[in-house]
């Protein structure tokens, strides 16, 4: 007998095949990233603070998220996004 049983808690999306690993950078890593590419924080691509993929991270705006993307051409590549509201 199949009844549509509903899960109460929100689904953990971090394990989904489309979702790469999201890691929060600490201040030191953040500074060295900006230094390495000689950019300002505003020039980084953005991610919204309420993005489902970063829901389990404690964030404030202007944090930098490191995304470990599985890339078809380069194995695992690093990508960075700035947290915005």
């Amino acid at each position: 007998m199949i009844t549509i049983a509903k899960k109460t808690p929100e689904v953990d999306v971090s394990k989904h095949i489309l979702v790469p690993k999201h890691i929060k950078l600490n201040d030191k890593e953040k500074a060295s990233l900006l230094e390495k590419y000689k950019i300002t924080l505003e020039e980084l691509p953005r991610i919204f603070i309420d993005d489902p993929a970063v829901a389990n991270l404690e964030l404030t705006t202007d944090d930098v998220i490191l995304v470990k993307r599985p890339s078809e051409t380069a194995g695992i590549t690093d990508f960075y996004r700035r947290v915005v509201k």
Binding site: L18, H22, I47, F48, P52
Partner: peptide, 19 residues
């Protein structure tokens, strides 16, 4: 929930995030 997919990009953005 780890493999289920849709072809609606906006739905993916809302449920699974921008990446």
């Amino acid at each position: 929930t780890d493999r289920t997919l849709t072809n609606d990009i906006f739905e993916i953005r809302d449920i699974l995030g921008i990446e």
